[in-house]
Every structure is written in C-alpha cells, then in structure tokens.
Design a protein around this nucleic acid. Structure first.
Lengths: 253, 253
DNA sequence: ATAAAGGATGACGTAACGTGAATGTCAATA
DNA sequence: TATTGACATTCACGTTACGTCATCCTTTAT
C-alpha cells in the first residue's frame, strides 16, 4: 500500500505540514518521490510514523525522537526511564503549583470573608453609634466608649452630602414604615417600596450589597433589641414587618 | 531604594534580558530613565515584578499577566480558578502519560525477561546437546530430538575459532576441578581460579552475564543429574564444589 | 476543455527570551 | 590623565514545531 502525503496525514491524524516538516528535519523521509515530485510513503513509513507519534505522546521532543529512532543501539529502556523521571518531576511541580493556588484562593476567600466580617462589625457599630446619638447614655454604658469611637473613625470617609442623603433616606424609611404596616401585608406595593428604600439606604454605606447580607441584617434587626426598639418606636410591630418585607423583596429581585 | 537593571535582575533572580523584554512589552516599565539612558527601577517596580513572577510561577503566560495587572477590576479569584482547572487538567494528562510509560516499561521489561528466559532455556538445551554428544543415546531418548535440534539451530552463530576457544576453556575447567577439590577449600586460590574460568566460559555464549544468573546456573548444575554426572565424572563431589566456589566467587567480585 | 482538488516550495509568524555584535558610560587604577 | 573592566544601550538573529498564506504545478472529475 502506498500513500500520498494527505492520505498518510489522514491515516495518522496529523497535518500535511507536519509530514513535510518531518521530511525536512529527516525524521520521516518518504519512501520515494514520484515523477511529479510528490512524496510517496509506504508501510515502513507508516510504522515509523506510529513510533514517532508514540514518543510524541510522551512529550519527547523531535530531536530526541530522531536520536532514538536513528540509533539502533539506543537504550530505549533508559530513555524511557529518563523521560519518566522528567514527567514525574513535572507532575510534582504541578502539584506544588496546584497546592499554592489552593492556598492562595483559600487565603483570598478568607480575606474577603474577614473583610466582609469586619465591614459587618463596623456597620453594626455604626448603627449602634447612631442609635446612641439618638438614645443617649444608656447604650454607651452597655458597650463602652472605645468600640464606639473606633467605629466612628471607620466611617469618617463619608462626605457631607452623602451623609445628608443618607439621613434623608433614613427618615423616609421611618415615614414609610407606619403606612406600610397599616396595609398589614408585607407583599403590598408600599411595603415593597419600603424594602427597596431600605436597600438603597443600605447600599449607601455597604459597598458590596448582597441579598444574603440584606436578609441577615433584617433578621438581626428583630433579634437585637436596640434595633427593634428603633423601628418599633415608629410603629408597633414595625421591625418584624420590615424584616418580612425585606425577605419578600429579595426573593422578587 | 533605586535599582539599575542588573541590581533588580539579581534581586529577583531573572536575567537583564528578561527585564528589557518586559519593558518592551509594557509589562514592567522602569520608574524612570536616567540621563545616560539607563533604566532605573524603584520599590513599586520591585513589587510589581514580584507579582509578575508569582503569576509566572503559576505558568500564566505574559499576555494574561499583562491583563491581570493592568485591569484593576480583573477578577483574580475567577482567574485563579480558571488557571487552577487548567493545571489540574495538565496534571491529569501527565498522570496518563506516566501510567502509559509505566506500562510500556513493564511491558518491555517483560519482553527482556522473556527473552532472557528464552536464552536460558536455549542455553540449557545446548548443554544438554553437548552432554548428549558425549553420553549418547540415553539422554536423547529422554528429551526428544526436536528440542535438541531447535537448540542447535539457535547457537549455530558461533565461529570455528570461538568454538575451539570455548572447548579449550571447558577442558581447562575439567582439568582444574580435581586440583581445586583436592584443596578441600572453595575459597582457596585455585578454587577461585576455577570459578573465574567458569565465568569466562559462561560469558562466551551468554551475552548478558550477571551474578544472579551465574549463581543460578551453579545451583542448576547440582540439581540436574545430567550436569552433576558431567562434573562428578571428573572428580567425586566436583559439582557441589564448583557450585560453592562460584557462590563465593560472585560475592567477592 | 476546464475547474476543482491536491501537491510543491518558499517565507513569515508564534513565545519568551538567549546570545552575540557594536557601541556608549561609569568608577577605579597605573 | 589615559586606560581598563564592568555595566549599560540598541539592534537583530536563533530557538520549537509547526500554522498559515502566496504562488505555481499536476492530477482527477466533469
């Protein structure tokens, strides 16, 4: 059986360019050249190509393959051994890399976690501070001056306008809350408006808004007497209602 | 702290060519160029280079590193994830290769084993043939004509001179054996000379001499009545003595 | 007869530098 | 002060294993 270059290429699943290149570097010469200058390959060449591709599979470079195939006394066993060691080394290197990346990713996730945690704590402290400003000494006595001062510092970055807008939003929420509770339905338009406004208010100081965090905060309102007092002061049962409205809100958005 | 190109190169353990290349592809520009056209790097550049090298460690290509470093909103976590998957894939590929090589090596060792086994069988047959020539019909009856003929063919490659030399060695061994036995000591000089000569004789027809094979052959002499008869004919207890001498010989050589 | 398919030979491009060659600059020494 | 050696600069070619044109020739099918 004789093969033209493209027949052989298809047979072995390589490109014709590859075969011409192998010819060029004397790795695989055609059996003969016909009268039109076409490369013609025979069975020997097919076998040799199979051998070449076998070594290539093993990531042996062509130069080495050339040595292997041209030197009959070439110690194939030793060559394989060497290549084997290289591959194992390479695998070890990869394992190292993979481990490093795993650590890095874990570390970064940890940082994000920590940083979110930190932000959350700071945020909580800030709310405490605000409440404190409104309700005075009794809270300060409970949580100490240091915590409050530290949290104040963390949020000093805000501009006057931002702060004013934030205040406005806060007041709008307090205005809206009794009206929403009056509907008795957390899914009502006005209740959902309330939740939306709360989100707006929240994103003002919380850079990375997420539904989970929003829901968590809503739950925290109910669980923490200080916040409960703040919202319940506007209307009785206001905190629970706000929480329910928020939970419904995040499911629909 | 400012660094010239070679200072930074040494610090980061890269070549100056690498730094010039990074400059060329805008991956790492020097902080400034001094009046003589020298590249001057500062602390920022050191840090950036560390980052670059970190990614390089992870086998990220320079083009991607450039994107990562130039785009501050680049999602590092996702990038690492992607790269991580690639590395794992690559490791899987390597595992495949390693497994294939292991199989191949085992297979080839198997072939060598088999071929050695075959040679051993053939060798044994040859000795039988020689004995047969000396002791005639009774052995031929035991082992059949076919085996003998087949083994004869296998060893026809030997030249006249080789064969003569081999015969001479064989006779020398038979001459030496009674004298060695007379000393009563397998560690004696003459016994060890005997063993050495036996090795010489053996390597004549056995291309791949090994201590283990030599010892194995010695044991076989004692276990196989035909060989035992051959050596014991020269001197009583000669076979066992030869075996002991050989065992001692291979330990000292 | 003509067109499509397949063959051949250049020759450039790739990634990340290594390795000169030719030339300029700086600090120290005879 | 002149020189030397270390260090700097910019070309520019080489490396691997082909991919991808461009240009031209041969075979096969219609």
């Amino acid at each position: 059986m004789e093969y033209t270059i493209s027949k052989l290429a298809k047979l072995a699943n390589v490109s014709t360019r590859t075969l011409r290149y192998y010819d060029e570097i004397n790795l695989l010469k055609p059996a003969r050249i016909n009268s039109s200058g076409y490369r013609i390959y025979g069975q020997n060449e097919v076998d040799r190509l199979q051998q070449i591709l076998f070594f290539k599979e093993l990531d042996v470079d062509l130069d080495t393959i050339l040595s292997i195939m041209n030197n009959p006394n070439f110690d194939k066993q030793t060559a394989l051994q060497n290549h084997y060691s290289q591959l194992v080394d390479e695998r070890n290197r990869l394992n190292q890399l993979i481990e490093t990346i795993e650590k890095t990713m874990k570390h970064e996730r940890g940082e994000i976690q920590m940083s979110n945690q930190e932000k959350f704590e700071a945020f909580k402290n800030k709310l405490v501070t605000e409440n404190e400003e409104k309700y005075g000494e009794e809270i300060r006595g409970k949580y100490g001056v240091q915590v409050v001062d530290a949290s104040n510092k963390k949020f000093k970055g805000m501009s006057e306008e931002d702060y004013a807008a934030l205040e406005k939003l806060g007041n709008e929420i307090l205005d809206l809350l009794p009206k929403a509770v009056a509907t008795g339905d957390p899914t009502s338009d006005i209740a959902q408006q309330l939740a939306a406004k709360h989100k707006e208010w929240l994103t003002f100081t919380w850079p990375s808004y997420s539904k989970e965090a929003h829901a968590g905060l809503a739950d925290m309102y109910v669980a923490d007497e200080r916040f409960k007092a703040y919202y319940d002061k506007a209307v009785d049962g206001g905190t629970e209602f706000l929480r329910d409205a928020i939970h419904i809100f995040i499911k629909g958005n």
